[in-house]
Amino acid sequence: MAVLPEGVGLDVTLHHVEKPTRTFLIDWSSKQVSGMDEGLPAMRQAVEIILQNERFRWQIYSSDFGSELENLVGEERDYIESELPRRIEDAFSGDSRILTVENFVFTEKIPGELSCSFDVKTVYGTLTEEVSV
C-alpha cells in the first residue's frame, strides 16, 4: 500500500526562479507614478523606500521591511557612527538582490545633523545613497 500518491516521491528537484524587478517608478517631486522600469533604476527606488520607511510603523509592510534609524536622532556621534552601518545592513538583509553595503562616510554638513553616504552593491550594479540623522 502506497503512502504517497502515484508518481510523487522525495526525489523531486526544486528550482529557484528569480522574480523580475520590473516596477512602477515614482516621481518623488510630484508624488505620481512616472512609468515603469527594471534593473538598477528599480533597485534605486527599492533602496530609497526601505530607507524612508521606519520598521514596524506601517502594517502594510512585513516586520522585516524598513529601517530603524529614527531613534538614532539626538544620540552621541560615536554611537551613531558605530550603530548606523549595522542598522542599514540589517534593513537590506531581507532583499536578496542586495549583495553588500560598504564605504560608509560620515559628514556633518549642518551643525547637529550627521550625514552618512554609502555604496549599495546589488546584482544590477552599485548605488550610492545617503541618510541623515
Rank of each mutant, 00 (worst) to 15 (best):
E18C: 07
V120S: 00
S63M: 14
R87Q: 15
P41M: 05
P85W: 04
T21W: 12
E48R: 09
A46V: 12
S96Y: 09
T128S: 08
F92C: 05
W28A: 02
D78N: 07
T100F: 05
L127T: 03
K121M: 09
T126E: 09
A46D: 07
G39Y: 10
L25A: 06
N103E: 13
V17P: 00
E68C: 04
L84G: 08
L69C: 01
E48K: 10
L84E: 08
Q45A: 02
I50H: 05
M36V: 15
G74A: 03
P5H: 11
I80Y: 09
D119T: 01
T122R: 00
V73N: 08
I26L: 15
V17I: 15
S62A: 13
K19Y: 06
T122G: 02
S29R: 09
A2F: 06
F24Q: 04
P20Y: 11
D95F: 14
D95K: 01
L51R: 08
E108S: 06
V3Y: 10
I60M: 13
S82P: 00
T122C: 04
S62G: 13
V105H: 07
I49C: 10
S34G: 15
T126R: 03
N71M: 11
G94S: 14
G7A: 09
V3G: 11
R44K: 15
S132W: 09
G74W: 06
P85H: 06
G66Y: 04
G74Y: 10
N103M: 05
V105S: 09
H16V: 06
D27I: 11
V131M: 05
Q45Y: 07
G125M: 10
S63E: 15
L72I: 04
A46P: 01
L40I: 09
S34T: 13
I60Y: 09
D37N: 14
V120L: 00
W58K: 02
I50Q: 05
D78V: 03
M36H: 15
M43Q: 03
V101F: 02
L69M: 09
E75L: 10
Y61W: 14
Q45V: 00
V105Y: 01
T13A: 11
F104E: 01
S96E: 13
I110F: 08
G125F: 13
V8L: 14
N103H: 08
K19S: 02
K121T: 13
V12K: 05
V123M: 10
L10D: 12
L25D: 06
L127G: 04
V33Q: 02
G39E: 10
T126M: 04
F106R: 00
S96G: 08
Y79R: 13
C116I: 01
D119N: 09
S96C: 08
T13W: 05
E48I: 00
G66F: 07
R57V: 14
T21I: 07
G125H: 15
P85A: 07
N53I: 06
N53R: 06
E89F: 04
G39T: 03
I26H: 10
T21C: 10
G7M: 04
T100M: 08
E68Y: 03
E81Q: 15
